[in-house]
């Protein structure tokens, strides 16, 4: 079976502050180090484990510019057999989903692993959209996954601390939550072997996705730092005094008690 995994190139999360393009319609990417979206690392690991248990080929897909293609290569040393780089600008979630669904169709994936959220646009939208476009079910925020190659069992965190165990048949789109697995480290031998692996570059046209399908329906503008907070204050005194004063301030000034 061909096992698909979606990998997005996203800014390193250790960055504390961005610079913006002159029209404030994006971040200044030149200032930023890009890596594999953290949640996609769990997706890659799960795909690699499925192959180790049941055979097949793991194909990682990314939509993005040349930099995204570079980040995709990192996954070739941690269990991915081949990369597909769709050379297109990420506009909105739906356009990206159309491209990923087209790759899933043309590759004939039997399952598709994604991250639960991309840490750049923070949409948590693309995987469910891909599933809808493919006519597949999806299970999101998955913390445990197992499959016999035909059916699967997954645990999902549905909010309020509730964990549900669900079952179904492949194909399915799965979105990975932290804790799904412990991603492996790159070994020197795998890094060497990865050099021989291939990342194919495809265009939207070659996938049969038209310019009209890629026209964004959501646009983003006015990028800015988070709103400034008024300067806070340190409450003086010993523990008991400071505690009493804090309670007073929370009640009378901040009005949150």
């Amino acid at each position: 079976m061909k096992i698909g995994v979606c990998v997005k190139s996203t800014p390193d999360t250790a960055i504390t502050r961005f610079k913006y393009t002159s029209g404030n319609d994006g971040i200044d990417a030149a200032q930023v180090k890009f890596t594999v979206n953290p949640y996609d690392e769990f997706a890659v690991e799960e795909a690699a484990r499925m192959k180790e248990a049941h055979g097949g080929e793991v194909v990682a897909v990314t939509v993005g510019d040349a930099g995204a293609g570079k980040v995709l290569r990192e996954t070739l040393a941690v269990g991915v057999d081949r990369g597909v780089h769709v050379d297109a600008v990420n506009t909105d979630s739906l356009a990206t989903a159309r491209l990923l669904a087209a790759v899933a169709r043309s590759e004939g994936f039997g399952v598709l692993f994604c991250g639960k959220v991309a840490v750049d646009d923070q949409a948590s939208a693309v995987p469910a959209m891909v599933a809808e476009l493919l006519g597949w079910p999806h299970v999101s925020v998955v913390t445990a996954f197992s499959t016999d190659g035909a059916t699967f069992t997954a645990s999902r965190a549905v909010g309020g601390g509730v964990e549900e165990v669900v079952t179904g048949a492949l194909p399915v789109v799965i979105t990975a939550e932290r804790g799904l697995n412990e991603p492996r480290y790159q070994k020197l031998k795998d890094i060497m072997a990865a050099k021989k692996k291939v990342v194919g570059v495809v265009t939207p046209e070659s996938l049969g996705v038209s310019a009209a399908d890629l026209a964004p329906v959501v646009t983003f503008s006015a990028y800015a730092d988070p709103p400034e907070r008024p300067k806070g204050r340190v409450i003086p005194g010993d523990a008991a005094e400071a505690a009493r004063e804090l309670v007073r301030l929370l009640r009378d000034e901040a009005k949150v008690l």
């Binding site: 750049d120 646009d121 329906v217 988070p226």
Partner: peptide, 20 residues
């Protein structure tokens, strides 16, 4: 108005489709 990049930036979002 919504946060992006784990809240390190904020953006305006507008929808051009018939439904948002």
């Amino acid at each position: 108005r919504r946060p992006m990049y784990s809240g390190k930036a904020y953006v305006d979002a507008r929808v051009s489709a018939a439904i948002g």
